Simulated assay, not measured.
Amino acid sequence: MIPWLTPETSFPPLDTALTQPNGLLAAGGDLSPERLIEAYRCGIFPWFNQGDPILWWSPDPRMVLFPAELKISRSLRKTLKKANYTIRVDSAFKQVMQACAAPRKGHPGTWIHDEMLAAYAALHEMGWAHSIETWIEGELAGGLYGVAQGKMFFGESMFSRTTDASKVAFVHLVRYLERRGFKMIDCQMKTAHLASFGAREISRKEFSLKLKELVNYPERVDKWCVDYESLE
């Protein structure tokens, strides 16, 4: 059994999360900005289907990327050098989320439903959630979004409408975060795609220890406004 959260209850200890399914910690509660900020600060994220109760997760191990360990393939380096794209930040947050929510081949459903869209849009307006976008000929071609706290970035989802568009956005995100002194990017669950960038798994205990240090930096909560050149 997992605990049911009420508006008055806090999250249970991470070590009480289930092993099957991996990391399921609690259910219920709400998606208010205060609850989401608390969740990320503790290393917890929501993931649930529309119509189901809110489910909260903290998997073990945890997939992370340390910016200094970023790997860029030879083919992607060629794409990055073409510079036939423009990188924008926080200029189309809702569009990025909606694109991430679109059905994908082999996955007709989505966990990014209206409730999640509204919750993260609120975080974005408050300066906590951000989008990195790849634009080609004036069209949004790919991008990703996530949540920033202290010197920690929590990646949520990405999409691509043209080859490498999301990868280009991801590389620029990592470069941008590294310049701002961010030390770790949460990738949540292991995928071959993220591993190809240098992401790796660490234990939940190690993740929690690093997280406590990184989120306790003085807060810099604002919308990100940078141009393409500053991401070079």
Rank of each mutant, 00 (worst) to 15 (best):
F159E: 00
F159A: 02
V168Y: 07
Q50L: 09
A102S: 14
H113F: 14
G51W: 06
L5C: 07
H193Y: 14
K82L: 12
P59M: 09
L14W: 14
G198A: 12
S131D: 03
I136C: 09
G29W: 01
W224E: 02
M1P: 15
V147F: 04
D227I: 08
G43C: 03
F93P: 00
T162Y: 07
F48H: 14
A195Q: 05
A118S: 15
S230R: 15
W128H: 00
D227Q: 09
F11G: 01
D30C: 13
H130L: 03
A165K: 02
A27N: 02
I87C: 08
I87F: 12
H130A: 06
V226R: 08
M126I: 10
Y228G: 11
E229F: 13
G28T: 10
R41I: 01
K71V: 08
L231R: 05
Y85A: 04
L140W: 04
Q188N: 13
D15C: 14
L65P: 00
K151V: 02
F48A: 04
V96F: 00
V174W: 13
G28S: 12
D164C: 09
L70E: 12
Y120R: 02
E133P: 02
E213A: 14
A83G: 15
I202F: 07
I37A: 08
W111D: 09
L80E: 09
P108D: 07
G155E: 01
D90E: 15
K105G: 06
W47F: 06
A129Y: 02
A122R: 13
A121V: 11
L173H: 08
S75D: 15
I2P: 04
R204T: 02
C42Q: 11
E219D: 10
F154N: 09
A92F: 04
P7W: 01
E213P: 00
N216A: 10
G23Q: 09
I44H: 04
R220C: 04
S131C: 02
A39H: 00
R220Y: 01
P7F: 02
E115H: 10
G127V: 03
P33G: 10
I132F: 15
H107D: 10
R35L: 05
K151H: 14
A92W: 08
P59C: 09
Q50P: 00
A192N: 15
